[in-house]
Design a binder for these strands. Structure first.
Lengths: 184, 184
DNA sequence: CTGCCTGCAAAGGATTTGCACTCAT
DNA sequence: ATGAGTGCAAATCCTTTGCAGGCAG
């Protein structure tokens, strides 16, 4: 029951492809739909996971095609990827405004966001492997500290911070197909 | 002129291996010495880099042996590794008390270390690929924020935050052998 | 039509494993 | 001596690349 029209985000991505002269093929469309669906579930998938789902939508899609699609969609600017610890890369559509976040309760005084860090941050659950978005400013204080202490200019946005997600902290190990790489 | 005795850290690591019934072989000793030397230079090396230097110390050492050594030294608890963005893993000896850090100049008020985060953090330069240690508390504020906003329990320690190191920000692209993976 | 994108297959780099042998203990 | 650790080579895993043909535009 999901063969209705493409979601607005997928439609936008397809439109953009067109503008750039890139072609809209079933493989690319499938990749976008799979990634969009995952995004909607607050998850980000690895090439392998995307491949599995794409194959389900478009059985004829070959591995190589998947990688090439991920690459072209990436340079087309409709898809973005981040490297998560443990040798895996996850993808997500670009253009997510800001993650759903209200300022935390009384978490001490958060550093004054003098110069907001660009891009958004990602966090990855060590239990289920799920990767979610986090507010871009969570690293503002860290950025200041690193700059003053080490002279290091933080450029977050390509890695995911490890930890335990709310879902997994509750009880069940959640996840139904995550590639979770718990151990080392 | 560097064939004096092993540094205390290497000696300690070797001693620990013994305690655990693990054997001390030239390959393992070489790996420890190479990693220790790098640590002393505030750098962390990849398996490939370690391999290159180990081969220089112990020419007979085979690739497979290197990986097995890294693995056993890891489970022996004398070596630790972290995944840096871009599919690379760097190693360092365990047991470093706290990174050499003085409070920076006048870069606004550094976050008061209310509840120190365990383990230490790593930062990786996108220009030269160098990985350095950073004070463990740089992520304290981020941890609080993630907990209150997403219910996510941060567990830093396995990934390196990307950015530009002081050395590279100065001028020259520094580095003489780093595996730096600049681009995406 | 024209050429971008796809499928297939084989290449490539990084890490791992089976096996017999050597050396640390 | 005795088996953990090693060297070598082949096997795996994941991703990329060369080609010829098919479909989008």
């Amino acid at each position: 029951m999901e063969h209705a029209g493409p979601t607005p985000r997928v439609a936008a991505a397809l439109a953009r492809l067109r503008e750039l002269g890139e072609r809209v093929t079933p493989a690319r469309r499938a990749v976008l739909e799979v990634v969009d669906a995952a995004d909607r579930a607050d998850e980000h998938l690895t090439a392998e996971q995307i491949g599995a789902r794409v194959t389900r939508l478009e059985p004829s899609t070959h591995r190589a095609t998947l990688y090439r699609a991920l690459t072209s969609l990436g340079s087309a600017g409709v898809l973005s990827h981040i490297h998560v610890g443990g040798n895996a890369t996850v993808y997500h559509l670009v253009g997510r405004g800001g993650p759903p976040l209200a300022d935390g309760p009384g978490t001490a005084a958060s550093a004054p966001v003098d110069r907001p860090v660009h891009g958004h941050v990602h966090v990855r659950c060590l239990s289920c492997g799920r990767v979610q978005d986090a507010p871009a400013d969570v690293l503002a204080a860290a950025a200041d500290r690193l700059r003053s202490a080490l002279g290091f200019e933080l450029d977050s946005g390509q890695v995911a911070l490890p930890g335990r997600c709310a879902r997994c902290r509750v009880g069940r190990s959640g996840s139904s197909e995550a590639t979770a790489s718990p151990g080392s």
